[in-house]
Design a protein around this nucleic acid. Structure first.
Lengths: 208, 208
DNA sequence: GCCGAAGTTGCACACCGTGCAAAAATGCAC
DNA sequence: GTGCATTTTTGCACGGTGTGCAACTTCGGC
């Protein structure tokens, strides 16, 4: 009905993809992430449970897709040249100058703050962070097609571990009110910058 | 009946723990890891499925216990002083001088070589590596009790990502015969050293 | 319109991880 | 040894996961 190139098929596919992601997004905002089931997501997205698995292999994979939407905007601002010579500092500058978008931070907070100390939560979180690292690895690979796989793999894991550690340190701080204050955002940035600093220095700079 | 201190209870507990680990070890040597089920492990260990879960939360957790047995011997040789000032180089030297025990490498190879490209394999592997990183984090925490959590978390993740990346690069090399040759071990060491070098330099040294 | 291809759905199945309560093993006091 | 409290094992049931498979529906081209 509209144009020839997109095609109805790909349009529908994109639509259900987005519906699933949106359903997941809203569920994360109102439930502890480790309690979310595929059935809930599918129902809210208006598709069958089976269809969910046609798009994502599991909840963590789908969650990493939400992450990807947020993170894609960030890494778009990266300088391809500086990535080649000093990627960690490039990323650190990006964080220092542009900062992390508040809705991104809010999502991270939702993902982890709801449920507290259960074992299941740590399992889910680990899987999600691993998926995010895999996504970043993919992105770096397309950004630096001829780079050493070792370079890309270790770098993406290292960077994501900084995010993860910063997030953990952040959520261990005392109670954080629902709408994130500027001070909270500032606190996360401090944690993340410190972590990236350790990464950049090879864990040598501060004699802990 | 025997002595007072160990006690029959803890002895039995240690025995079934070891039985489960041994069963898992033998299964890994003869099956693709992602096909191993809890029922198989329990049966071979001579306990019920339910008892397995009394000891380990999942197969990946149990696998990381096997890893821990191997790795504990390695990090015992670490100099506590050098860890504080330059942990990555300390670990790098350890690998360069002592090397990775061949049976450790053989286990890593078994864990990953059997099954090829399935999606389930990557999922399992990621979980296992995450568990290993958690174990190392624990070890570093007891080794450096007053260190910054960010320091310990990012460091352990970074180091384990080097092992993971080295292992991936290693297994992508052409077919490796069952008994590991010295050249194979050498190859793994080269990959690992290169990865640790990237880690130590903050991904700056080689202008890829 | 019709037909092949792509996408969706329900179903079945093996497996996972956990709560619960009965049963067995152990430690301890006497 | 006997009895009792505690720990451990075990079976069972239950809800959730992820996948293969076979209809069935939707879409694109001719």
């Amino acid at each position: 009905m509209t144009e020839t190139s997109p095609g109805r098929r790909e349009l529908n596919r994109a639509r259900t993809h987005e519906a699933i992601v949106a359903a997941l997004r809203s569920l994360v905002a109102e439930l502890p992430a480790e309690l979310i089931t595929v059935e809930q997501v599918a129902e809210r997205a208006g598709v069958s449970r089976r269809t969910f698995f046609n798009y994502f292999g599991s909840i963590p994979v789908a969650l990493s897709a939400v992450f990807a939407e947020h993170a894609a905007g960030m890494i778009a601002g990266l300088d391809a040249e500086q990535i080649r010579t000093d990627p960690v500092t490039a990323l650190r500058r990006l964080v220092q100058e542009d900062g992390i978008p508040p809705d991104f931070l809010g999502w991270l907070s939702d993902l982890n703050c709801h449920g507290q100390g259960t074992d299941g939560r740590m399992l889910l979180e680990r899987t999600v962070w691993a998926e995010m690292a895999a996504w970043l690895r993919e992105q770096l690979h397309t950004l630096l097609p001829d780079a050493d796989p070792l370079f890309v793999s270790t770098l993406s894991s290292g960077v994501m571990s900084c995010f993860q550690a910063a997030e953990e340190a952040w959520t261990e701080d005392p109670d954080r009110p629902e709408p994130l204050s500027d001070a909270d955002i500032e606190a996360f940035h401090r944690h993340l910058d410190r972590a990236l600093g350790l990464l950049a220095s090879g864990w040598r700079s501060p004699h802990v």
